[in-house]
Amino acid sequence: MVTVDPTKVADRIARPTTSGIQDSRGYRVFQVFNTVALLGVVVVTLYPFVNIIAQSLSGESHIRAGDVNLIPRGFNVTTYELVMSDSMFWINYRNTVVYTVVATLIAMVLTTCYAYVLSKRNLRGRTFLIGVAVFTMFFNGGLIPNYVLVTSLGLKNTLWAIVLPNAISVFNLLVMKSFFENLPTELEEAAKIDGLNTYKTLWYVVLPLSKAVVATMILFYSVAYWNSWFQAFLYMDRAELFPITIYLRNLIAGANSAGAGLESSDLAQVASNIQAVTMVLTVLPILCVYPFIQRYFVSGVMLGSVKQ
């Protein structure tokens, strides 16, 4: 057992000597600046969000007068009650959840399989398969042909119109492919010797080692689907099929167009803090996903798995 005399340790911390490793002056200056700069970034990023929250909880006259900054003024939650009492809000909210979950699931399965295949350097036709994927990054059929295609496949007004057409994001595919390429081939060889076929190798060996990239991809896909509105706007003809993003977008457009006053006797009843309320309600769930996924962003999981 090595015993440590606490007083000596304290002494060394208090009076750093010139010997031993210590932060150079330049590094400490850098740290101070770094902290200040990053705190600045935090403020810039958080301020609008806190401001939106404050607005969502403030009284209308205070918002109109521009009094609201970080703290709600004239506290009121009537708008929350109002928005939450609109059944269409919840229907569209549920749609967004369903679309996001299903779309992310499909996208993950397809992207993982494709990326795993592409990561095999000795695969015949690999260049062609990569070419096919990359081609779609630069060229597509265009809006109207796509619309005609989806319509004639009978996908319009169904969930599939949203989840199928863009199931594989080529960018995500390439990220995943290069991650798989960096996995030691020895691990897969060992799995093969132990009797696993390709699919089992993917499932039992490769995927457990790829939690970091899988978590990243889930995050990328789910945030993208959560925020997306354009596909739904194109292919959905009924309000009860819209995701919450369209609801929100329309709400804001309605509030603004009422200001332009083109519609006869169509007075604006949308208070400006309805926008803030809806934004808060829409952002919260996806915000809550981050901490749970973040713990998979671990590095060095494969440290020591292969002896060379």
Binding site: F233, N250, G254
Partner: peptide
């Protein structure tokens, strides 16, 4: 009815 949100009525 084909329902289109007001925000993007002209595009649709």
């Amino acid at each position: 009815l084909t329902v289109v949100p007001l925000s993007d009525y002209d595009d649709k």
